[in-house]
Simulated assay, not measured.
Amino acid sequence: MRTATVTINPQAMTHNLMQVKKRAPSAKVLAMVKANAYGHGIAAVLPALEQADGIGVASFTEAFEARRLGWDKAVGLVEGVFSASEWQQAIDNGCSCVIHHAPQLQWALDCVPIPNSPTRTVWLKYNTGMNRLGFDEQGVISAAKLLYDAGYQLILTTHFANADDCDHSLTSMQIQRFNEVLTILHRDVDKNIKASLCNSAGIINYPDSHCDWVRPGIMLYGSSPVTDQSASELNLQAVMDFSAQIMAFQTVKQGEAIGYGSRWVADKDTRTALVSVGYGDGYPRVVNDEAYVQVIDSAKQKRYTCSVIGRVAMDMLVIDVSRTPIALALDSKVILWGATLPVDDVAQHAGTISYELLCRLSNRPLRVIT
C-alpha cells in the first residue's frame, strides 16, 4: 500500500504549551486551532491543550467540532461573526467573539446575551497598524463605551504585523498606540478591561507586552515564529512527522534528466530512489536545489541526508541515494519533515512559511496519533 504518513505527537504539543506558559506565566492562553489545528487535526490536538484557558477558531464549523469533541472551555471566534443570525449562534453555543467593525458592533448591541453567558465577553479589535481588521482609535473608544454600557466585558486586542522581527519599528509603534488607548479605556470606561497583544512571535520577542491573554499559534505546533531563533533553540518540539517510503530505485546515466521539465541532469551516473509522496499529499512542488529528506536505514539504525532532485510530481519525488549503502531496503522510511528535519527548513527551500506547508496537507496521507 502507499505509505505517505502524517504522525501527530500530542505530548510534543503539551510540551510546547508549557513553553508558552513558562514565558507568559501571568497571562491566560488562547490556543489557536483554526485551519484544522494548522493541518494537524483538531481532534488530535485538543486533549494536549487541556491546560490552555481557551481556543481560537476562524469559523463555526471549527467551533462546533471542538464542542462535539468535548471542549468545554472558552471558544473564541477570531474573525467574529458574519451576520446577525451568526451572532445568535454564538450566543446559543457559548462562543466569545472578536468585534472589529460597525456591523458586528450593531449586532452585539441589538442582541445582548444574558448575564454570565460566554458571549458577554467580547474581544474588541483595535487596528494599531496591521490595517486588516479593527476600529481606529476613536472608533474603538466609542465602541468600548457602547459595549460596556450594554453590559459586556471587554478584552482589547490587536494583531502585530512584524513581531517576528524584534527590530521592526512598527511593532513598537503598535504597542505604544495600544497602551495609549488601553489607558484611556481604563480611565474613561472601565478599569477592568483586559488586554491581549501577543501572538507566538510576540510572546517570544515582547515579554513586556504579554498582558492578560496571549494567543499562541505556530509555536504550539513546534515551528519557530521568529526570524533569528530556530525551534530547537526555543525548546519547541515538532508535533507532526511527515514521512513516506522508498518505492523503487533507479540509476540515472550521466547526461540524462529526471522528471517533468528535465530540470535536473546527472553530471555522473547517479543512484536514485523514488519516494511515494508528492504535492498531491502536501509536499511542496517547488523546492530549490538545497531541499533534502532523511532516509532511515532500519537495518543499520542509521539516518542519511539525501537531496531532492528533479521536479516534485503529484504522487512521487526523487532523491539522490548515491551516498547511502547499496543494500538500502526498498521500504526504507523517508522523513519529509518532523522532529529531526524542521518544517521551517523545508518551507525555506520552498520559498514559503511553515504555516502554509502544515495547513495545506491533503487528506491522502495516512493519519496516526502516537
Rank of each mutant, 00 (worst) to 15 (best):
V343W: 07
S200N: 15
R120E: 04
G139W: 06
I369M: 10
M314S: 15
F135I: 05
S223H: 10
P25G: 14
L220Q: 08
H15L: 13
A195I: 13
C166T: 00
E79S: 14
H168Y: 15
I91N: 00
I203K: 12
S362H: 05
A266K: 06
H210G: 09
Y126G: 06
Y283D: 06
A44C: 05
Q106R: 11
I353Q: 14
L109S: 08
A90V: 00
N131C: 11
D53H: 08
N235E: 15
N116R: 11
Q138T: 01
A350Y: 01
K300M: 08
I353M: 14
D228H: 13
R177Q: 14
V334Q: 04
G41L: 08
A31M: 02
M240H: 08
G76R: 05
I335P: 00
W123S: 06
A150M: 00
W107G: 03
A74L: 06
K125L: 10
S142R: 14
D110R: 02
C211K: 14
V29W: 02
D228C: 15
L109Y: 03
S322W: 03
G351Y: 02
Y355C: 13
T119P: 01
I8M: 06
L317R: 11
S230V: 12
Y279A: 13
L328H: 10
M316V: 02
P216A: 09
V33E: 05
D136T: 05
H40A: 15
V20P: 08
I91L: 04
Q153P: 00
V308K: 14
C166V: 09
K300I: 00
R323W: 00
L156G: 11
V334T: 07
S276L: 05
P47I: 07
M173I: 13
D190N: 09
G80S: 10
D315M: 14
Q19I: 12
K21S: 05
L185Q: 11
F60N: 05
W87I: 00
D281W: 04
Q301G: 09
M173V: 14
R271V: 09
V112I: 12
S172V: 08
A313V: 03
S232V: 10
A4S: 12
V312G: 13
L154M: 03
L154H: 04
A329H: 06
V287E: 08
P10E: 15
D315I: 02
V226E: 12
I99K: 05
V287N: 03
Y152P: 02
Y221E: 02
S298A: 15
P118Y: 00
W71T: 02
V275T: 04
H40E: 13
D136Q: 01
L357M: 13
I258F: 05
V214C: 03
A102M: 05
L236D: 01
Y221K: 13
C111I: 00
C306A: 14
P342Q: 15
A299Q: 13
E137K: 01
C211P: 04
A150V: 01
